[in-house]
Structures are given as structure tokens and as C-alpha cells.
Write a protein that binds this DNA or RNA. Structure first.
Lengths: 126, 126, 126, 126
DNA sequence: GTGGTCTAGACCACG
DNA sequence: GTGGTCTAGACCACA
């Protein structure tokens, strides 16, 4: 069963996309693997305190991405292959790093400085 | 006079926030300095092809952030100190790197790997 | 639900600021408390006969001040603590009295005279 | 000659009205008396760093109010009587105190509390 | 249904 | 000419 205990809502981006990203990152990290069962929409709604419609939208998005599959009634299961995992990983990483790099360049920061900033942030995180 | 020739609209985030970010990054990069004159709503509106009210919203946000000063009837000027520049710089950089680092950690990526990804993206950018 | 039945538009200051002040004074008076639900833009717009965008501007200001919280798609709620209430109360009161006192001093009025003028105005009000 | 050394620009109200109020308060305080000469528009403009058009607008307002009079070319003189001084005094005081009283009532403050707040503000001013 | 953004255009006070 | 406000109406993402 996919666990959402670590899930935390943040402001800034839509909740349903936060849920999608959470699952994607879990897959890349290996904590979510092929065949895992997703919690039912009702349960997840109650668990993280989010409107059922929002959960539905997230699940729909995950289905469209081919990451989960609804089988036998209301239950959903994760369906991924090593290849698709790599694809997700690449997409997640390149999108975010590209944005960071572009903005830092606009701020006139050198690559060395950027790298040291990342290393710093890495250590500071709790 | 603050130049908006480099400004390019993108999709995804509100236009008025793109303008705000553009100015903030310009300040960090040093291309926008204290006392600089901002273009008027009408001029900027014509320049980048955006409704004057959208410009107004961006200017209002910048004023609330203490980055520019506007007086009705008079022109708008940039009002920043070296201290506030450092504050903006720190806030912008830490916000972006923190988000990236947090997500990478959730994906089970090591610091060395993260740094090499940034370096790679840096070279690829055009 | 926050009630706007007592709200009355006046001339002189922008409508959106009148709405902001109305809410602030309601909080100080205790008629608006933490967790109260704000009317939606459309409802309030119809109720007091003002364009929805003007309401939106007021709500935005209140949100920037940390007095209400809005999430796209969900309703808006008042989010204040006893501490912030005291802050608002103090700021409102001191701002108004300070301006009056300063001007009276410039007119060469004594404190006793000032107090009797306030008492007089208090009784005259309907 | 009417002195503007004590004059200080503030935000919030139009500059030309600030100038008008400054003169009015000086009259009530007795520091400006009948027959005093006003500085020329050019001189005052340079002295307090304000656009000549703004000065012109203030002088025009003072003329319309019958407080100053332009004689012999560009020179202006204060022309007031004890009666008109009392009128100005009453108008200035009642307008401001009435606004204060009204707002405080809306905040659920008692008269005694209001008076003590005024007394407090009186002592705190430098 | 709700908030957020954008466009279009008008009016006003101010400098 | 410049900024500030308001109206009117539309579209979208979100819950």
C-alpha cells in the first residue's frame, strides 16, 4: 500500500499536482514500486484533509500519465516499469534544474557559486 | 531608466508576477540600481504588449515589497539599499535552491549527483 | 459568516480601502472573529452594489495583511490570533490619535482643550 | 514673511493640500498673522522640493478660501480677520475629531478610553 | 461555486 | 503625462 504519511501540503502549486508529484518522487526514490495498491479516494481524502474532488483529479492525472491503473472496482494499482521510472526521473529532474539554472544565469551568478549554493542548501536542510 | 528589452513573456505564471521577478532578478544582477526610473504604465504597456492594468498590478506589488516608490502624478523610481538588495538576493536564491534540494532528497539523489546534474544543465543552456 | 449589513459606502477614500477598514474595525470590536467565513466575491458584490473586482482588490489587501486566507476554489476565512488582533487594534488607534494630536499641537491647543473637544464630539454624534 | 522651515511632506494626502493645511494651522496657532507675506512660488518650490505646479495649486486653493491675496505682481499676502480665524479653527478641529470619534465608536471603545488614548498620545509625541 | 487573472476602457487627482 | 481607482465582462484552474 502506497503510504501518504510523509505527504505535506504546501502553498504555491495546486494540491492535485502536489499529490501527483509526491507519487512520482516516491517512484523515483524506490519507496513506491510496481503493483503497489493506492489508498481509496475516500480514505486519502480523509487522511490528508483534502476535498474528494481534488483527489479524484490527481488520480485521473496519474491514470492519464500511465502511472496507476484502476482495476476490480474502485481499487487502483501502481503500474510502472524500470524504463518508465527513468523517464519520470529524467523529466522531473531536468525541468526543475533547468528552471534554476536559467534564473541564476539571469541573476549573474557563476556556475561555481550556484553549485556551492546547492551544496549549502543540502546541508542546511533538516 | 530601467530597460525591459530583455523581458520575455512566458506561460505558466501570471504576467504581473513575471514582471515582478524580472525586476527582482535585475536588481540582483546589478543591471537595475537605486534611483533608476521605471517606465510609465502606458509606455511599458505598449512596449511589451500587455494591458496597462496588468502593469499597474505588477508595480503595486513592487511597491508593497518596498522595491519601487510611486507618487500619484509623478514618475516611479527604484528605491533599494545595498542591504535590501542582499535580502532580495538571499531570498530569491534560497527559495529556489531549497525547493530543488528538497525534491531531490525525496527522490533519493545524492549531493554529488545533484551537483553534476546542475553542472550539466548549466552547459546545455543556450 | 462575516456580516456586511452595517457597511455603508462613503465618498473620499477608495471603496476597497473602506471594505478593508470595515473588516479591521469589526475585528477590533469583536464582531468578527477567527475562523469566520467571508462572503464570496459575487455575493458581497451583489450585496453592497460594487463591482466584483473591487471586492477582489479588498480581499487581496486583507490577505496581504494576514487577516484572511484565500485558496483558489475554496472559500475565504478570517485567520487572526488574539495577538494579531491587539496589533491591529493598537495600530488603528495610534495611527488615528497620533495624527489628530500632532495637528492639534501645531494649532497651539492645550491637552485639556483637546480632551473637551473630543468629549463634545462624542456627545454630538448621532 | 511666512516661514516654511517647519514644513514636512508626508505620504497619504496630496502635497498641495498639505501646504494649505500647514498655512491654516499656522494661522490658528498665531504664528501666521494678517498681512504676512508669502514666499514666492519659485522660492517655495525650491525650498521644499516640490513641483512649481503643485505650489501654484496650493496658492490657488488658499486664494479661493480667501486666506491669501495676490497683490502688486507676484507677491501674495495673508489676509485674515479674527472671525475668519475662528471659522478655520472650528472647521479644522471638528472635521478631524468627528472622524476620530466615529471610528472609535465603531471599534466599540468607550469615551473614557478614547480620552485616555488621546492623553497618552499627547505625552508620547516628541 | 470560488478565487485569480487578464483585457478594455473610462475617470479622476496629482505634478 | 502619470499613477490610482473603478466598472464591465470574460476565462481559467481549482475544490
Amino acid at each position: 500500500m502506497v503510504s501518504f504519511e510523509q505527504f505535506q501540503m504546501e502553498d504555491g502549486s495546486p494540491i492535485y499536482l502536489q499529490i501527483v508529484s509526491f507519487v512520482q518522487r516516491g517512484i523515483v526514490a524506490g519507496t513506491i514500486t510496481d503493483g503497489d495498491e493506492m489508498p481509496s479516494r475516500r480514505v486519502l481524502s480523509a487522511l490528508i484533509g483534502v476535498n474528494p474532488n481534488t483527489i479524484q483529479k490527481a488520480y485521473r492525472q496519474l491514470e492519464d500519465d500511465g502511472i496507476i491503473e484502476s482495476r476490480s472496482g474502485a481499487k487502483s494499482y501502481v503500474t510502472i516499469t524500470p524504463a518508465s521510472t527513468r523517464t519520470i526521473r529524467g523529466r522531473l529532474l531536468s525541468k526543475e534544474t533547468a528552471a534554476l539554472v536559467q534564473n541564476m544565469k539571469q541573476m549573474g551568478i557563476s556556475m561555481e557559486e550556484a553549485i556551492s549554493l546547492v551544496a549549502e542548501a543540502w546541508s542546511e536542510e533538516e
